[in-house]
Design a protein around this nucleic acid. Sequence first.
DNA 1: TACAAAACCGACCAAAAGTCGAAAAAGTTC
DNA 2: GAACTTTTTCGACTTTTGGTCGGTTTTGTA
Lengths: 212, 212
Amino acid sequence: MKKGEKRKSELLQIAYRLFVSKGYENTSVDEIIEEAKIAKGTYYYYFESKEQMLEEVIGMMIDKEAGAASDIASSDMPVPQKIIGIIAAFRPAPDEHSIEGALMQPENAIMHRKIKLHLVDKCVPMLSEVVNEGIGQGIFDCDHVPERVRMLLNLSNDTFDEGQFSENDVAVFIDMAEKLFGAAPGTMDFISGLITKQYDNNLPEGHSGGEK
Amino acid sequence: MKKGEKRKSELLQIAYRLFVSKGYENTSVDEIIEEAKIAKGTYYYYFESKEQMLEEVIGMMIDKEAGAASDIASSDMPVPQKIIGIIAAFRPAPDEHSIEGALMQPENAIMHRKIKLHLVDKCVPMLSEVVNEGIGQGIFDCDHVPERVRMLLNLSNDTFDEGQFSENDVAVFIDMAEKLFGAAPGTMDFISGLITKQYDNNLPEGHSGGEK
DNA sequence: TACAAAACCGACCAAAAGTCGAAAAAGTTC
DNA sequence: GAACTTTTTCGACTTTTGGTCGGTTTTGTA
């Protein structure tokens, strides 16, 4: 990795952290360059604009997640678990930075939307294949697979990414996930276990600040 | 209506038009005050901030649409038609200003999101009542009505508000709308007719500019 | 060593949201 | 109608922020 590449990736790393912790709009280029100890001109030597940088940051995130998702897709898990696993992989790790704290806030609408678009693009083909696998195994039965996959993705975003959701929301999500793919009732029930396990520690307050 | 009120509503009107036609972010306060022929100070006499003004503009829109939706809810249409009618009422008129041209563009993510939030809040109670009516009539059969209504709303947003959608998308939407409420297959088929009627003239290019 | 390419610098610019003290305009009271 | 108050209006000014540009240093190379 030559020097330029290294600097660029360093900037992307800083930006990623800032964007995720305090939002894209609330992060100024000045903050980024101050933290990186470089001048304005250097920043714009590496990036056309702040927005283009966001694009690269998101690309970075998605690519990383796509790797994990791809592993799941080619694993020997049962198909329903694969599907949920892939969806989960494509969502920012709750531990890494306080993502649900800031990423999903209204000020972050732009970033949120862009992530969603990239994510859907990467995710639909991968998931469609898995669903077709399920159809082959006889546990799913439906037409228009890509459209249904896209819908499941949207459903999952809408239900779980907006911060809070009730047990009823989860129940309806499970019900619809089954019906979406024509699966037998109960096929997706395991989801509820995963979700409470993963999101139970959703503290209303509770980030211990990280900036120096 | 005293003088102040009138001016404020005039400003809201101008802002509405500009926000809708070119997006919230792409509309500057300077443009608004120039069009209204007032000074900066006057603007900030009426509005705390640009964002607060957006909030009021959206409130205006939603209230207006809620009126139309309420009429539909209390009409004697069949329940499925009511539901779709209400959803349609809560979506900016395609004729009024080139809403799908700008409102749904990525730059407008903030406005889009805010509208969605307000809309869901207003819409869920109204639609839930109608769905319960349908359950009473025996054409629907489901639990967790508000959650399902919210999901339908999200589904509709995701499918139709992102600009383009295929026939398959519509087919899946109809299928899921039926299954969401436990309706008999075919109950929602009339939607496809409405949609092609309403959206067939979705010209890829084709807005004849409106600014002087 | 000389030359070129890559990397870097920071003063400067323009756009845009928001502030503020002062001045008109409109109402009120006597 | 004068005196006084409240409402409305004004526009110069400030601050923040994304972005530009010409020049300089560093690095690689013939």
